[in-house]
Design a binder for these strands. Structure first.
Length: 424
RNA sequence: GGAGAGAUGGCCGAGUGGUCGAAGGCGCACGCCUGGAAAGUGUGUAAACGCCGAAAGCGUUUCAAGGGUUCGAAUCCCUUUCUCUCCGCCA
């Protein structure tokens, strides 16, 4: 959520920046400005009204003590009048505040200056490419066939037990999955991240805190009896650790990581993109979440991106890094880098990580602040997060790219976790 | 799920209708004391919003949340949430 002060002080800047995200803010901002003026006027009147009431009350108190109860009657009558006006003012203020809130929720985060212009994924800027992204010169098998051949992931069985998008990992499939989780977590811990095991369900307040609610309600599984939501990413519980928290400057940076299963309804998605492991309702991911001082958040974003890249390098997978354009970047993000691995059998790039700086957008909703030592004032912290990494597509690329006549070669770095070097 | 107790500032803890934003303590910050430290001592110690160019200052709100009684509520009533204890169930 954007800060109202920013809109109040520099509306044109907000309008201009949001054009990059193809969001026309002009109308909404003029509404907010008008409501903002209203609310302040009414607030002032309300405050004055309340002050008057308090004064009169104090006088009544005095009179009662002096035993002059009769004289208090006049004052009571005046208070009754004030209360009438108060009611009206309260209603006006509350209504304006609600409307402002509604509108602020509709406004996306401002994109960083480096976000390229563009409308679709095709306009994303490729900032880095690594590894051999050429295709096999023979008929390579896509992973959905490979997993059947080696009997390591069973999609049909998942359908039987639950439904589409809930695969069952078996034998070496389950083991390599666990190996990837361990590898990602160990690497993160070595890089100074604190490992967190978060709850997989969150309450409504947490879902609001990180912005899943109110706008993305349909994307989460909702447990209605208890009003809990299954997390779509570990970002939600891990970031919400810091909801309503006031930090000291010396606390920065706060670096957490965590593995979780992730649950996404992905309502309305269909077609070839979702085949096999490409898109699931339940999948595994290791997430990194950083809370940082506003002055250093972009340095930190760079480090997080580099860190995520190092994982793909170690796994020996060809990949590229994209700087997302204004049209493709998420609602909440100011700057996002996507990491995509190349899947040689599918002959396409698959997104395995998204590393973003949300600046103060999430922190504003979370009320995550710190005391600025120089000024003594409260400021919003910056939040960042990234996948490091999401497993299914990494596994898909790994299976496809490492296939040989004799089996699938397990990357060197995973062997100490799997205990085998070949899936055959 | 049943029965009971409770929720106060960074923490502990007092406060059952009238200058209570809230005693006292701890912690923290700054000063004095000291060669330095400890001890001692003094002062200060929340946030949101608004008025003001800024600061100072002032005003309003906030004692789990929401509603009610009252001229006036941390204090009384109702609802909700959460925590604790005992019982039941249970990996």
């Amino acid at each position: 959520m954007l800060q109202i002060q920013l809109i109040r002080e520099n509306p044109q800047f907000v309008i201009d920046r949001l054009k990059v995200k193809h969001f026309d803010a002009e109308g909404i901002i003029s509404e907010i400005s008008q409501l903002d003026v209203d609310i302040r006027q009414n607030k002032k009147s309300l405050d004055d009204n309340l002050m008057e009431q308090k004064k009169l009350s104090a006088e009544i108190g005095k009179l009662f003590k002096e035993g002059k109860a009769a004289e208090a009657a006049d004052l009571k009558a005046r208070i009754a009048e004030l209360k009438e006006t108060e009611k009206q003012l309260q209603a006006k203020v509350a209504e304006a505040a609600d409307k402002i809130q509604e509108r602020l929720f509709l406004m996306p985060n401002l994109p960083h200056a480096s976000v390229p212009e563009g409308k679709t994924a095709a306009d994303n800027e490729i900032v880095y490419t690594e590894g051999d992204a050429s295709n096999f010169d023979y008929d390579a098998m896509p992973h959905w066939d490979l997993v059947k051949k080696y009997d390591i992931i069973d999609f049909d069985l998942g359908c039987k037990i639950t439904g589409a998008g809930f695969p069952v990992y078996k034998g070496k499939g389950a083991r390599i999955q666990r190996a990837l989780i361990d590898f990602f977590l160990d690497e993160a811990v070595q890089h100074g991240f604190t490992e967190i095991q978060p709850p997989y369900m969150v309450n409504e307040a947490s879902a609001y805190g990180t912005g899943q609610l109110p706008d993305k309600e349909g994307q989460m599984y909702h447990c209605e009896v208890d009003d809990f939501y299954l997390i779509p990413t570990a970002e939600v519980p891990i970031t919400n650790i810091y909801r309503d928290v006031i930090l000291k400057e010396s606390d920065f940076p706060i670096k957490n990581c965590g593995y979780s299963a992730c649950f996404r309804r992905e309502a309305g998605s269909y077609g070839k993109d979702v085949r096999g492991l490409n898109r699931l309702h339940q999948f595994d991911k290791v997430e990194i979440v950083v809370i940082e001082h506003p002055d250093r958040s972009y340095e930190t974003l760079e480090k997080m991106k580099t860190y995520a890249m190092s994982l793909l390098t170690k796994l020996g997978l060809p990949f590229r890094v994209l700087r997302l354009c204004g049209g493709d970047i998420s609602f909440t993000s100011a700057l996002t880098f996507d990491l995509e691995v190349y899947s040689k059998a599918q002959q396409r790039w698959l997104e395995v990580s998204s590393v973003s700086n949300f600046e103060s957008f999430q922190a504003n909703r979370l009320k995550l602040r710190f005391k600025d030592e120089a000024t003594g004032k409260m400021r919003l912290a910056h939040t960042l997060n990234g996948s490091a990494l999401a497993l299914p597509r990494v596994l898909a690329a790994l299976l496809e790219n490492n296939q040989t006549d004799k089996g699938i070669i397990v990357p060197e770095v995973l062997r100490k976790y799997t205990g085998f070097d070949m899936i055959d």
